[in-house]
Structures are given as structure tokens and as C-alpha cells.
Design a protein around this nucleic acid. Structure first.
Length: 424
RNA sequence: GGAGAGAUGGCUGAGUGGCCGAUAGCGCCGGCUUGCUAAGCCGGUGUACUCCGCAAGGGGUACCGAGGGUUCGAAUCCCUCUCUCUCCGCCA
């Protein structure tokens, strides 16, 4: 959420930012409503002030006088209550609108309509040229009985799966490697709730825009399954005022992630690329409100992910996500795409975002600076490793003609020292 | 699931209808005292919105877990909910 004061000061900037993101917003209408809310607020504050002093006088008046004075106050009160009802309706409407105002994208965000216009900023490694007909991960999974999508679908519907044997172990190895690496960099590991209240989904910016993408419990419990550990970790300090000295806070969390994938019928239906549940190690940073520091963190968290891919010996590229492909909350986003032979393309495996105040303001996540001033924090996050897609890349890139899969050196200690899996 | 107790400012903890945005202590900040430190003394110390002011600053309103209600007036009374703790039951 943007600061309403910022919107008042820079309406054109906000309107232009929304346009760059291809998100419809009427800034003028919001400002008109804001003005209305404030004007009525002044009236109400004034009425309450009179009400309070009148009540005080009644308390001090002789008992005989009180009933008559109270009677007068009753009429005043009715008028006040009517204004209050009007005011809170307007405030609620304003908040609804504000929750949908997108964050202003950075100048470095490229213009563009959709992901086809994202701009590649880096490429590492070279996609391997096979001297045999490479299998896709599903074929490899069937060959070794590592993946069972049929029973997954029978148990839980389409886009659900079982991982078995060495692939299940490999999933754990990938995630644990990623986690260990981040801990070594000073990130605090956390185990987190994956079922959260919907105000946390609003706070992190997923709601109201992304309600369709989240699994929700029924009306007995106001809880949602998170699509990423970013949600509980970023909301960890909700409603707190942190000591500025304690920032930045760097967290890393391993969690299951749940996505409804509404509106993706017929898209990526084969295999583990687009699934309803997967596991992910996520890095989150909370820091002071300094755009330069946020930017530096952004580069760092991208680099952290790159190092994991390099350790896995997987070719990747980094793209600067264009305005039209950017979500409402982000200032800027870099996606890392890893080479996937079956797609004959790079597929998104990581997403690194910086938000400035957008999430923190919704979460009421603040800190006290050295001068004692309370400010809203900045937040950022990025994937470190996400299980299903990382497994696709590892299987497909490191497969051999006989269907076995070579393990990169980094993963061997996590796989009992083995150099390959699926050897016959 | 059953029974009970609770939720107040950074923390501890008073406050059962008007004198309470809230006693006191601790912590923190400033000052004084003092070879240094410790102790002591004095003062200050919540958040949000809003109005006035160039500013320093000042005024108003709201907030005592959340939401409703009673009342001229609610931290205080009533209702609902959430959370915490204790005991019992069940259970990974």
C-alpha cells in the first residue's frame, strides 16, 4: 500500500506507475474520496470535542440539573452517530481502493506488456547439446519410478504428484543445500506456519488481487494456505516497531507452498512444472526505508540464488521483469530462469522482488531510526530453491544416455556421497 | 472438547462509571551532583489521523486484545469473538 500522503503529493507519478504496470486505477477519484473523508473527519472531531466537554459539565453539575442536560446531549449524540456511520463507510471504501493501488515501478523497470517483453540482463552457462535423445523429467521419472502423477491425481486431483525413492531424497538434498548456504551467509533459518489468516495475505499484498490463486479454508476458519514462505516470514513482525539497530533482519525459511493455479487450465499440464504443492526455500530481508540499501539487497538476493544454480551446474539467465508482467506490490522484480531441455527454453525458477514500503505499510511493520522517528520498513524476498522446478532442471540437464542422472558435486554430500542416481 | 483465570504503554504492574492517554516501578533519553564507575537528584519519554503555524511548536480526535452495546459520559458495566495461562479429556 502506498502512503496516502505520497499519493496526494505525487498523483501523476502514481497514475503513470499504474499505467506502466497495465493496472487500471483512478487516482483522481481516490484523492476526491480522501478529501471527503478528511473534511468529514474534521467535522466529527469537532462534534466529539463538544460532546466530551458537555459530558464533563454534566458530571460537575448539581444532580438536579443533570437529567435536563443529559436530554440535550442525547440529541447531539444522534447527529454525531449519523456522521460517524457515513465517515466509516467512506473510510472503508477508501481503504478498499488504496489496497488496489499498485506500487510505483522503478525507472529501471522496462516498458512492456507481458513476459515476452522482459529484458535479459545476464546469462550463465551454456545449455548442453546432447549426443543422444534426451528424456524429459517425466520419462526419467517413469523409468526409475521416481514420479507418480497418476496416483497424485487420484489422491488429490490434477497437478498433484508423489516423489519416490532417490528423487524424494534429491528434493530434500536440494532444499537442505539451499538452506545451509543461506545460513552460512548469516540468514536466520525459520520454520513457519503455512496456514495464515487472510489479513496476512492482505498485508503481504497477495489479497485482494490474488484471492483466486490461494487455497482458503471454509468459513469455520479464516485461514489460507500460503503460496510461499515469504508470507509468514514477512508478516512475522506485523504491527511491531523494531529497533532500527537490529536491521536488516535476514531470514530464510523452508516451507510447503500451495497454489491453486486458477486460470491455467491446459497450460504446462505435463509434468512437475506447474503444480499445486511444492517445497521451497525462501529468503526474506526486512530493512530500513532506504532505497539504496534496498537496491543493494536486491542485487545480493539475486546473487544468492545464482550461486545455488552455479553450484548445481545449471545454465540460467536473469531477466528484468517488464512493467506489464510486474505484480502490483513490486518496485522491481528479477526472475531467474533455468534451462530446461524438455521446454527447449529457460523456465522460471526464482523470483526476486523488492517492495520498498508496500508490504510493510500494509503489515504495519515499522522501526525506530537513530533520531527516534518511527518509519515504515522496506522488505524484499527471493527464492533460494524451489523443489519441483529445480528437480526438473537437475534431472533433465544432468541426465546421461542410460537414463542415470549425474549429481553435481555440491549435492553429493547430501546424497550419501553418491555421484549419480538412477544407475542401472 | 469440558472447567476456570486472564489480556492495560518498551517491560512489570495499579486502576470497577466523570478528577484516566491512563498511578507507580523498571528501562530509555537529557541535565545536575561526582577523581572514574556505581548510587543519588531533577526533567523528559506511546502511536495514528487531523487542524493551525515558514518553522520551533501548539490545538483537536482516536486508541487500555478485537468488534458491537448500555450511558450525557466506559480501561471500568453488558454481549460476541480472538488469543494466553491453569486443570481435565483426547491426540501427533
Amino acid at each position: 500500500m502506498l502512503d496516502i500522503k505520497f499519493i496526494r503529493a505525487e498523483p501523476a507519478l502514481v497514475q503513470a506507475g499504474a499505467a506502466k504496470k497495465r493496472i487500471a486505477v483512478d487516482v483522481d477519484a481516490i484523492l476526491a474520496l480522501d478529501k471527503q473523508v478528511r473534511e468529514l473527519g474534521v467535522v466529527i472531531d469537532d462534534m466529539r470535542s463538544r460532546q466530551k466537554s458537555a459530558s464533563k459539565r454534566i458530571g460537575e453539575a448539581p444532580a438536579a440539573e443533570r437529567p435536563r442536560l443529559a436530554e440535550e446531549q442525547k440529541r447531539e449524540k444522534a447527529a454525531l452517530q449519523e456522521q460517524e456511520r457515513e465517515h466509516s463507510a467512506l473510510q472503508a471504501r477508501l481503504r478498499e481502493l488504496l489496497l488496489r493501488v499498485p506500487n510505483v515501478p522503478a525507472a529501471e523497470v522496462p516498458e512492456g506488456r507481458d513476459d515476452s517483453e522482459n529484458v535479459e540482463v545476464k546469462r550463465w552457462g551454456t545449455p548442453r547439446s546432447f549426443d543422444f535423445e534426451p528424456r524429459d523429467h517425466i520419462a526419467l521419472g517413469e523409468l526409475h519410478d521416481w514420479i507418480d502423477v497418476e496416483r497424485g491425481a487420484r489422491i488429490a486431483g490434477s497437478r498433484n504428484y508423489f516423489l519416490k525413492g532417490d528423487l524424494s531424497l534429491l528434493e530434500g538434498a536440494v532444499l537442505r543445500f539451499a538452506l545451509d548456504r543461506m545460513v552460512a551467509k548469516g540468514f536466520l533459518p525459520m520454520s513457519v506456519p503455512t496456514l495464515v489468516r487472510s489479513d496476512v495475505m492482505v498485508g503481504t499484498g497477495y489479497f485482494p488481487g490474488g484471492v483466486e490463486q490461494a487455497y482458503r479454508c471454509d468459513e469455520r476458519d479464516d485461514l489460507c494456505l500460503v503460496g510461499t514462505a515469504e508470507v509468514p516470514v514477512t508478516a512475522y513482525h506485523q504491527d511491531e516497531i523494531l529497533d532500527g539497530q537490529s536491521l536488516p533482519r535476514k531470514y530464510v525459511a523452508w516451507s510447503s507452498c500451495y497454489r491453486r493455479e486458477a486460470g491455467t487450465y491446459g497450460k504446462d499440464t505435463r509434468g512437475l512444472y506447474r503444480v499445486h504443492q511444492f517445497q521451497k526455500v525462501e529468503q526474506v530481508i526486512v530493512d530500513v526505508a532506504d532505497p539504496a540499501r534496498s537496491l543493494a539487497h536486491h542485487h545480493d538476493i539475486v546473487r544468492n540464488a545464482e550461486e545455488v544454480l552455479e553450484a548445481f551446474e545449471l545454465p540460467y539467465r536473469v531477466v528484468n521483469v517488464c512493467g506489464g508482467d510486474l505484480g502490483a506490490p513490486q518496485v522491481q522484480k528479477f526472475d531467474i530462469e533455468t534451462w530446461m531441455p524438455s521446454r527447449r527454453a529457460y523456465g522460471e525458477t526464482h523470483s526476486a522482488s523488492r517492495f520498498h514500503e508496500y508490504q510493510a505499510r500494509r503489515l504495519n511493520l515499522r522501526y525506530r531510526d537513530p533520531e527516534g522517528v518511527v518509519r515504515v520498513c522496506h522488505t524484499l524476498n527471493n527464492t533460494v530453491a524451489a523443489s519441483a522446478r529445480m528437480l526438473i532442471a537437475l534431472l533433465e540437464n544432468h541426465q546421461e544416455a542410460d537414463g542415470s542422472v549425474r549429481l553435481p558435486a555440491a549435492l553429493r554430500p547430501y546424497m550419501g556421497g553418491r555421484e549419480r542416481i538412477g544407475a542401472r
